[in-house]
């Protein structure tokens, strides 16, 4: 019963939502809206558990002065500070806005900007011409890179941009579409496995 009931609930919910996708009638739309509300309610309780997990983890580190416990103080102070400022004022609270715009946003932008350096280091490793395939990859990368900057068009008389467009629009799109089709069918097969109770890992062990 412990296994059958969740599988039955999963099957019924999945079946109704699958039918809903093909039926635009108001009654089915309302069913979808209700299921979204249920999801939000579950999400709310899950968020409480998430925050509890976060606080307990960091609190333990601070309490027992574990390695790097000082970072946990920053995390807890950040959580408490932003929550308090957000609760005291409305969304237009200037302190909240200031904290968001001048602390959180720059931190996020800094993390994102690291991507440029990581791309350079990953590209250096990926483009080393050790095998035939790696050499082809290197050549394709050179063509695409030169095709995307003005100097590429200048030195080749427009050849590099033309070649880059061909590489991007044909072999690249073909490979991408093949992956997307595989992913679509894979997602459908996985959904079917979940619906029929063949795939049960998400509920714990078999």
């Amino acid at each position: 019963m412990k296994r059958q009931l969740p599988i039955a609930i999963t099957f019924i919910c999945a079946f109704i939502l699958t039918v809903q996708y093909f039926v635009p009638h108001r009654s089915f739309e309302m069913m979808y809206e209700v299921s979204n509300v249920w999801l939000q309610i579950i999400g709310f309780f899950a968020t409480l558990l998430g925050i509890l997990s976060l606080v307990l983890n960091h609190w333990e580190k601070v309490k027992y002065k574990q390695e790097n416990w000082i970072y946990s103080i920053v995390a807890l102070a950040g959580l408490a500070g932003m929550t308090l400022v957000g609760l005291i004022g409305s969304q237009d609270n200037p302190v909240f806005e200031w904290l968001y715009n001048f602390i959180l946003s720059p931190i996020q932008a800094t993390m994102f900007s690291l991507l440029a350096f990581f791309i350079a280091s990953a590209a250096y490793r990926a483009f080393r011409a050790r095998t035939t395939i790696a050499t082809i990859l290197l050549l394709a990368a050179i063509v695409v890179m030169l095709g995307r900057v003005p100097i590429g068009a200048y030195i080749s008389g427009g050849l590099f941009p033309w070649l880059a467009d061909i590489l991007l629009n044909y072999p690249n799109v073909a490979a991408k579409r093949a992956i997307i089709m595989g992913v679509g069918l894979g997602a459908a097969a996985t959904s079917l496995k979940v619906m029929l109770g063949i795939e049960r890992s998400y509920m714990g062990s078999d």
Binding site: K176, G182, V183, T190
Partner: peptide, 26 residues
Amino acid sequence: DEPIQIPFFVAACDYTLIGEELYAAS
């Protein structure tokens, strides 16, 4: 299963499950 991210993983990881291979794992 995000096609755009697959090249990044291929470049930086030792093994990469491409698209549907992730679903085939179970």
